[in-house]
Deep mutational scan, measured.
Amino acid sequence: KTYTFRVRIVDEETGEEKEIEVTAKSEEEAKKAAEELKKKYPNLKVELE
């Protein structure tokens, strides 16, 4: 079973919002993916929905 999570990304500089879908095998995995995004884009606000 896989879970699909919507991750909302807000670029703090431009105020631009993007939504991406993360497919993960567990909620834990999705959280890790969101953390990776935060590391990659430090000025983005990442929200897991």
Rank of each mutant, 00 (worst) to 15 (best):
V22Q: 00
T4Q: 07
T14R: 03
E21C: 14
E29I: 03
T2F: 12
Y41C: 04
K1T: 08
G15I: 00
V7I: 15
E16M: 09
T4F: 09
K32Y: 09
S26I: 00
E47Y: 15
L37C: 06
K31I: 13
A33Y: 15
V46A: 04
R8K: 11
Y41M: 04
E27K: 08
L44E: 03
E36S: 07
K1A: 10
V22D: 00
L44S: 12
N43A: 06
E12G: 06
E29W: 05
E47M: 13
K25P: 08
D11P: 00
T23L: 10
P42R: 04
K45T: 11
Y41F: 10
A33I: 15
K40F: 07
T14I: 01
Y3E: 06
L44M: 13
A30C: 09
K18P: 00
K25R: 13
V7D: 00
K40D: 05
E12K: 08
K18V: 13
E16K: 05
A33W: 15
T4V: 12
E27R: 14
Y3L: 08
L48D: 03
Y3S: 05
A34L: 15
K45G: 04
E12D: 09
F5D: 01
E17L: 10
L37N: 01
E35C: 08
A33F: 15
E36P: 01
E36D: 11
F5S: 01
F5N: 00
V22H: 01
S26P: 00
D11F: 04
V7F: 12
F5H: 03
D11I: 05
L48S: 05
E28V: 07
V10W: 13
E19W: 15
E35S: 07
E13P: 01
E17I: 14
A30G: 04
T14E: 01
K18E: 08
K40G: 04
E13M: 10
N43R: 07
K39Q: 09
R8N: 03
E47F: 15
R6Q: 06
V46D: 03
E17W: 15
E21T: 14
T14F: 01
T14W: 01
A30D: 00
A34S: 05
A33R: 10
G15M: 04
E47L: 14
K32H: 10
E28W: 11
E16A: 06
E17R: 07
K1I: 11
V46H: 04
A34V: 15
E36N: 08
K45C: 07
E12A: 09
S26K: 00
E29N: 03
K25T: 13
R6A: 04
A33P: 00
K1D: 12
Y41D: 02
K1V: 09
Y41N: 04
P42F: 05
K31F: 12
V10R: 12
E12F: 08
T14M: 02
E12L: 13
R6S: 05
A24G: 08
E47H: 13
L48Y: 13
K45V: 10
K45S: 06
T2Y: 13
F5R: 01
K31C: 14
R8E: 00
R8Y: 11
K38F: 13
V46Q: 04
T2V: 12
V22C: 14
I20M: 06
A34C: 15
P42M: 04
E29H: 04
T23G: 03
A34K: 05
E36G: 06
I20W: 11
K39L: 11
A24D: 01
K25G: 13
K1G: 08
K38H: 05
E35I: 07
T14V: 01
R8H: 06
T23H: 13
K25Y: 14
P42L: 04
E47I: 15
V10P: 02
A30P: 00
N43K: 09
K31P: 01
K38D: 02
Y3V: 10
T4S: 06
L37R: 01
K45H: 07
K39V: 08
E17A: 10
E12V: 12
R8F: 11
D11W: 04
E19M: 15
F5K: 01
K39G: 06
I9E: 00
R8I: 12
I9C: 08
K39D: 06
P42T: 05
T23E: 11
V46S: 04
E36A: 10
